[in-house]
Amino acid sequence: MSELKTILHVDDDDDILEIARMALEMVDSFTVHQFNNGSAALENINALAPDLLLLDIMMPGMTGPDLWEQIKARPDCPEIPTIFMTAKAEDSLSQDLLNTGALAVITKPFDPMSLGAQIRSAWSLLEEA
């Protein structure tokens, strides 16, 4: 498995995008591309060729799982490891996503100082597999 460098992050909340960007770029030196809706992410994903998708589950219009399904369905798009973020309490959806191939589900609020470590930890599981 290649090294984790580029992360595509989609969340409808601008503050959370800002906090995550600072956490991943400044603390962990990832290259982060961010969008506040799924449609924009879909338009740019091929050009950005991210190593990892970090998707918020609850977004207006297109949800994180919807976006993930559309990305997986695109023949021109390689399979990209995906981590979801959620502020909801329900376990069933998270479990469903993990069962269908999601790398991890990170629950909000997250600690910006350890967000990169959480992502690397999940990525390492992928390397072990």
Binding site: D15, I16, I19, A23, K88, A89, E90, K108
Partner: peptide
């Protein structure tokens, strides 16, 4: 679920920004 979302989202903002305030040198 909704309450959880509505609590955790601003809480994420509060705790997230506050984390940088605690370490301004970052």
């Amino acid at each position: 679920n909704t309450v959880s979302h509505e609590l955790r989202t601003p809480l994420t903002v509060v705790l997230g920004y506050n984390a940088f305030l605690k370490k301004p040198d970052s």
